[in-house]
């Protein structure tokens, strides 16, 4: 469903961050991406999502048969791409529920689906928050406003579960989660998975991968995939570090 070929991306000042990256993700797969700090993992997910800070200078990204790089940020999202941010922003004054409602409406409009009615929406939100063991008061609060690090990550998973993307890049969603939250979030990820959907977990730790088991593990070093393997690679890395 996702095909990245020889992807090069630079910052506005011309500094190259992604230096010829190749990655394919098929339907129903869980991938893990690991790699040292500053290797380009977050940059990769933001480039795919269309962040304006980066310029693609070479290569291609095809998603569901479409040239993703020619689409707007919103079009990419509505085609089924989701990015779970490493550092979710706080937007005071925009209610969490109001925000989710607006994203669902935008998605339905883009896909020419009828507007989701109020009761269906609140039912879905309630169920999802229960699954993620989030107290209902998080509905009313400003988007991530004053949320703890772990709560923000859980809120990203809430957004993902509501939007039901076909491909989610979750950037260090496990960092900052306590042991219970990790299990809950992994449970949320597993619930979303089916034969049509895929997840790419960007992580530094094996812990999350114990719950959400990847079939493929990749290591990004200096803007490229330096090594790919099966689930065993993550264990090997944990033991030996990135000295490949």
């Amino acid at each position: 469903m996702l095909n990245i070929k020889d992807l090069h991306a630079t910052l506005a000042d011309g500094t190259e961050i992604l230096k010829g990256l190749n990655l394919s993700v098929g339907k129903g797969e869980i991938h893990a991406i690991m790699g040292p700090n500053g290797a380009g993992k977050s940059t990769l997910s933001k480039v795919i999502a269309g962040h304006p800070s980066y310029r693609v200078t070479k290569g291609s990204v095809v998603f569901h048969g479409k040239n993703l790089l020619s689409l707007s940020v919103a079009e990419r999202a509505n085609l089924g791409f989701f990015i779970g941010f490493q550092y979710p922003l706080e937007i005071p004054g925009l209610g969490n529920e109001e925000f989710l409602r607006a994203t669902i409406d935008a998605k339905h409009k883009a896909l020419n689906l009828p507007k989701m009615n109020e009761s269906e929406f609140s039912e879905k939100m309630k169920k999802t928050m229960q699954l993620l063991e989030m107290d209902s008061r998080y509905k009313e609060r400003g988007l991530n406003e004053g949320f703890s690090g772990g709560e923000k990550k859980r809120n990203e998973i809430l957004q993902m579960a509501m939007l039901e993307p076909s491909l989610a890049f979750l950037d260090e969603t496990d960092s900052g989660l306590d042991i219970d939250a990790l299990r809950i979030v992994a449970n949320g990820i597993n619930k979303l998975m089916n034969a049509e959907r895929s997840v790419v977990l960007i992580t530094h730790y094996q812990r999350l991968l114990d719950y959400a088991k990847p079939q493929f593990v990749h290591v990004i070093i200096d803007g490229k995939i330096a090594k790919s393997g099966g689930a065993g690679l993550a264990l090997e890395l944990e033991e030996k570090g990135y000295e490949l």
């Binding site: 999502a49 269309g50 962040h51 304006p52 800070s53 707007s72 940020v73 919103a74 990419r76 999202a77 509505n78 989701f82 990015i83 941010f85 979710p88 922003l89 937007i91 925000f99 607006a102 994203t103 935008a106 998605k107 883009a110 957004q159 939007l163």
Partner: peptide, 14 residues
């Protein structure tokens, strides 16, 4: 800019 990107990444237009 990052806040705009955050909202757009959830499917809404600029």
């Amino acid at each position: 800019e990052d806040a705009l990107f955050y909202l757009q990444s959830r499917g809404m237009g600029l």
